[in-house]
Design a protein around this nucleic acid. Sequence first.
RNA 1: GCGAUUGUAGCUCAGUUGGUUAGAGCGCCGGUUUGUGGUACCGGAGGUCGGGGGUUCAAGACCCCUCAAUCGCCCCA
Length: 443
Amino acid sequence: MAKVQTPKPVRGTQDIFGEEQERFQHVVETFERVRRLYGFKGVQMPVFEPTAVFARSLGETTDVVSKEMYSFEDRGGDSLTLRPEFTAGICRAFLTNGWQQHAPMKLSAHGPLFRYERPQKGRYRQFHQLDAEIIGAGEAAADVELLCFADQLLNELGISDGVTLQLNTLGDAESREAWRAALVEHFSDHQAELSDDSKTRLAKNPLRILDSKAPNDRVIVDQAPTIDAYLTGEASEFFAQVTEGLEACNVPWTRDSRLVRGFDYYRHTAFEFVTDRLGAQGTVLGGGRFDGLIEALGGQPTPAVGWAAGIERLGMLLEEMPSDSVELAIIPMGDDATVRALSVANELRQSKFSTEMFGRGKIKKRMAKANQVGAKAAIIIGDDEIASGKVQFKDLKTGEQTALDISQVIEKMWDLRFSEDLDSLGSDIESLEQEVAQLGDAD
RNA sequence: GCGAUUGUAGCUCAGUUGGUUAGAGCGCCGGUUUGUGGUACCGGAGGUCGGGGGUUCAAGACCCCUCAAUCGCCCCA
C-alpha cells in the first residue's frame, strides 16, 4: 500500500491556535466593546457575493479585480467572489434591504476576507479584518466620530505607542479632478526621470506615483503639487471641520499630503494609522470617505465613510497575552475517585470556577500539570476522601493542604480570587504613584 | 507577477573543504521519590535532513526542478 500523503494547508491560510488565538480573540473582543460605546450596530455579512458587487465598486478592469479576487462559478453558473473587503458588501446590503430608511447607519463587522496575494508575515490569503462604516452621513462630524472610535480602539488595545494617524483630504470631485490634472502635468514633465513602474502608473493611476518607493521618484514627488491649492472652498472647509473636531477630541494626527486612495469613489478624508514596528506592512488601520461608492452600485448618491483594520496585524502589536488559566485542578486517585472527582468538578464549574481534572499518569505528573496550567489550588480525592466526604485542598502557592468539604472549597476559592484582585489593584496603584512621582520630577 | 534569504527532532539551532551509527539546549516520557508540584541528578523515546531528480565509490552539504516561510518590489479594496 502506498503511504497516504497528508494534504497540505492552502498557501496563505493559517491555523490560529494558542497564544495567537488569544491575541486574535482579544482584538475582536476589544473591538466589540468599543464599538458599542460609539453606538455602532454589528452586522453579519455573506462571505461571498455576486462578483458584480466587487467588480462594480472597484472597477471592472483593475488589477485587484482581474488578478487578486477569488472568483468562481457556482453550480448554477453564476459568478461569485469570496469577499475581498467588507465595504462593497455592506453597501450592497444597504441598497438591497432598503436600509436608507435607517440612515445614517453606523455599522461594524469583522471576519475573514480573501485576496490572492503573495503571503508574508501579517499578510495572508485568508485574513481577518475589523470594519466600521457610517453610511448616509455627509457631515464632517461623522469622520471625526469614526476616527475617535479608531483612536480609542488602538488605545484600549495598548498599541498606540509608535502609531501615528496620518491624515489627508482628497477634496470633492472638482478638487480631486483639478489636482489629478496638475499631477499628471507635473509627472509628464518629468517622465524621463521616472521609474518604469511610475511611467505605467502615470497612465493607469497617477495618484499612486505619490507613494512610489523608488528613490528617484521621491525627488519628483517632493516637488509635486499638493492638493491644497486645488481645494474648493467647500472642500477645504470640510477638511478644516475634520481637523478641528480631532483637536477638540484630543486625537493626535499628522498631515500627510501624499496619502491617497486607489479608487475614484473616495472623497475628502483619507487616513491611515501607521506603525514603524511592522516593516513594509506599516498600516494598521486605514480608511476614508467614499461618497461615490453607493452610486457606483446603482444607488442614489449617498455619502459614507469608514475604516478597516487587519486583526492579525493588530494582534502582532499586542503585548504578550496571558493564556486562559485554569483556577482549580482536580486530581483523583483510583477509579472510584474518578467518579467522585467528576461530580466535584461539575459542582465547582456550576459555581463559576474554571476547573480541570487531571486523571492520567503518575500523581507527581498530575501535580506538575496542575502547576503548569496555573491552577491556584489542587483538589486531591482518594479513598480516604471518599469515605470522609471531604477533599484535600492544596493551595499551590503556599503549599498548605487541608481537608475541606465542597462549600468550604468554594469559600476558600472566593477568598483566593479576592486577594488576587486586591494584589493587582495594589500594583496598579503603585505604578500610578510611580507615574505621578515621575511627572513631579519632570517638572 | 518579480527579486533575495531560509528550510536539519515538538521548539530554538549546531553540523568544518562531500567521508562511517546526524548532534546540543529546551520540551516530552521514565527513574531516584509505591497518595502530592515548582529544584537537582540519572536514563529514554523522538529525524522522510521540506519534496523530487541528478553528479559521485560516497550527498544534510554540490547541481537542477519544485513546495513553503521570511524580506523587499508590484498591488493595496
